[in-house]
């Protein structure tokens, strides 16, 4: 391969192309199939769900969705998830960006401090389960959306700080200096000059943080109560002691994932562009 002739190069290219197309095709099918299967299951009757061989063509029923939004009142958990995910995303992106700006521009804490923050990301949530419960219980905030929002905010901070720090470091310092000379305070310079330039980065970061908060289960299962249950927890309620109610459970899974997918389709072009602007250098 070291000194390929023209024809050899073409054939090796050909092989690469074939391999690449297979990889792409397999990735597309493999990625989508479980979600497709979940959605398909949610539209089946109970007998069709349990039957083998599995049915690909079946009479569509909306019973599972009726049960989900009727008896199980899934709108409320959905709303809770939305509130918690939006709250923690906004909170962690705002606080994280502030810290990231200071870390990236002013080197607060030298090199070690940012590393400590990054290391926080490795803290497995299960290690936190019991102590965080006591912390929240002590603050009298059990079963509240506020507590869960705060916990997610914390869990996401390291990620936000690291991603945003990369974005800020890519923005030329000269722009802020010009603003400072024009009489802007540090804060004004950041808000008026730097943040608009970091918008793609903010968007990408927000997306990832939102996904993480939207899908978290372990802590939500113990920190939420009847009125504040989030959507993944409410979905897991269909998995009981004597079996799983597949229909409503898969309907819940579909309802949880669909708005995310729709949103992601709209912004997917910006994900690569946003990441390219800084995250990859962080």
């Amino acid at each position: 391969m070291a000194s390929p002739g023209a024809s050899m190069r073409r054939s090796s290219r050909q092989r690469w192309l074939t391999a690449a197309s297979w990889l792409i095709a397999a990735a597309c099918v493999g990625n989508v199939f479980p979600i497709y299967w979940m959605a398909a299951t949610s539209l089946k009757s109970e007998a069709d769900i349990h039957t083998y061989p599995p049915k690909f063509i079946f009479p569509i029923t909306l019973d599972n969705y009726a049960q989900l939004f009727g008896q199980a009142n899934f709108l409320q958990p959905f709303e809770n998830s939305l509130a918690v995910a939006v709250g923690s995303t906004v909170g962690s992106v705002v606080l994280g960006s502030m810290a990231a700006y200071a870390l990236g521009r002013f080197k607060v804490g030298g090199r070690l401090f940012p590393m400590w923050i990054l290391a926080m990301r490795m803290f497995p949530p299960i290690v936190l389960a019991l102590p965080i419960f006591f912390l929240i219980s002590g603050a009298g905030l059990l079963n509240s959306r506020l507590a869960l929002t705060a916990v997610y905010l914390m869990l996401n901070l390291p990620f936000v700080i690291w991603l945003m720090r990369g974005f800020f470091m890519e923005i030329p310092l000269a722009l802020e200096e010009a603003a400072w000379i024009d009489g802007c305070s540090r804060w004004q310079a950041m808000v008026q000059v730097v943040l608009p330039l970091a918008r793609p980065g903010l968007a990408v970061t927000s997306i990832f943080v939102f996904i993480a908060s939207w899908n978290e289960f372990l802590l939500a299962a113990v920190l939420t109560g009847p009125e504040t249950r989030t959507a993944p927890v409410a979905a897991a309620q269909f998995s009981g002691e004597y079996g799983i109610l597949w229909g409503p459970m898969m309907a819940a899974g579909t309802v949880i994932v669909l708005p995310m997918l729709a949103a992601a389709m709209l912004v997917q072009r910006y994900i690569v562009r946003g990441l390219a602007l800084g995250a990859v250098k962080g």
């Binding site: 792409i24 990735a27 597309c28 990625n31 989508v32 479980p34 979600i35 299967w37 979940m38 299951t41 996904i211 939207w214 899908n215 289960f217 372990l218 959507a231 993944p232 979905a235 897991a236 998995s239 799983i244 597949w246 459970m249 898969m250 819940a252 899974g253 949880i256 994932v257 995310m260 997918l261 992601a264 389709m265 997917q268 072009r269 994900i271 690569v272």
Partner: peptide, 26 residues
Amino acid sequence: RALVSPFLLVPLMATPAVVALAWNQM
């Protein structure tokens, strides 16, 4: 890439606790 990216994005959005059960069934 524009055509394929949406497909590649899908698993990222899936709720692990729920999708694990779907995998189990599959």
